[in-house]
């Protein structure tokens, strides 16, 4: 019996993909190194160019749904900044991601012995979506009078000289949707002209390419692969061991190659069943 498209149903396709994801994890197969894309290299170079004592604003614009895909790049960026002695100011535009983002920043800071309010702060979340970006462009302390842990932002050492968005050496939004990187381009960078980089899920990546090509974004870390590239750069440049993204790359490899196999199989069966010849 010819195995047609109907015979290989959704659930069987899902089972094959599931197996592709699980096998490398269960058998702990080591991953091979990824090649570095220009967008990821650009973000890395920009963070590398911030002088010690300079400032990086990290906006965690995602919720726990995208945690597996975006948390590794959040950690990698925070680690990079802390390793280089750059001040980190973090925040989020998605309420449900607040506690997760706080944990990412706090845990990364503690790895490098960084002190809250002096070396870093997590400002938290505020309602308004992109309006928060607009307001931060006017007055950072008015937008966030206190940080997530209720420390007043007026007089907070980590915010010295940082009155609005344009005072940051670099701003990176790690986003899963809206409000996210696109809103940072339109309501942040366009208006205030600061350096902006992005990190994103694979689903919204193609939508951000136009901004990357025009230079409205000066770098982009796309999906788990981008995070794996960043982790590799961190190991090469600073000896920081790779994290979750690199570990997941082999699962990605197996699952995507399984999908390619399925597509090829589907076409072979399609042609053998005669549909491909126009019958």
């Amino acid at each position: 019996m010819a195995m047609s498209r109907q015979v290989l149903a959704r659930r069987e396709v899902w089972a094959i993909i599931g197996a592709g994801v699980l096998i490398p994890i269960v058998f702990s197969i080591p991953a091979t190194e990824v090649s570095i894309s220009k967008g990821v290299q650009a973000v890395y170079d920009k963070v590398e160019s911030i002088p010690p004592g300079g400032s990086l604003l990290l906006s965690f614009d995602f919720d726990p749904a995208s945690k597996p895909e975006l948390e590794p790049m959040g950690r990698a960026l925070a680690r990079h900044a802390f390793k280089r002695g750059v001040r980190v100011v973090a925040m989020g535009l998605w309420i449900t991601g607040t506690s997760m983002a706080e944990a990412i920043v706090r845990e990364s800071a503690s790895e490098f012995g960084k002190v809250p309010t002096r070396d870093y702060t997590f400002l938290g979340w505020k309602p308004g979506g992109y309006l928060v970006i607009v307001e931060m462009g006017q007055d950072l302390r008015k937008t966030f009078p206190a940080d997530f842990n209720r420390n007043p932002t007026v007089g907070m050492p980590v915010l010295d000289g940082l009155d609005s968005l344009r005072d940051f050496d670099y701003v990176v939004s790690i986003a899963a949707g809206d409000p996210g990187v696109e809103k940072w381009v339109i309501f942040g960078r366009q208006k205030h002209g600061f350096a902006l980089g992005g990190g994103c899920t694979g689903v919204i990546q193609p939508g951000l390419y136009p901004y990357l090509q025009t230079g409205q974004l000066d770098g982009l870390i796309p999906k788990i692969r981008g995070a794996a590239e960043y982790e590799l750069l961190l190991r090469r440049g600073h000896g920081i061991p790779e994290g979750l993204a690199s570990a997941g790359m082999l699962s990605m490899s197996f699952a995507q190659l399984a999908l390619v196999g399925l597509i090829v199989l589907g076409n072979v069966l399609h042609w053998r069943s005669g549909k491909g010849t126009g019958r």
């Binding site: 091979t32 990824v34 090649s35 692969r225 990605m252 490899s253 197996f254 995507q256 190659l257 390619v260």
Partner: peptide, 12 residues
């Protein structure tokens, strides 16, 4: 197929 294979280190 190019994008799927090129996206993962094993494919590269």
């Amino acid at each position: 197929v190019i994008l799927l294979v090129g996206n993962v280190p094993l494919g590269e």
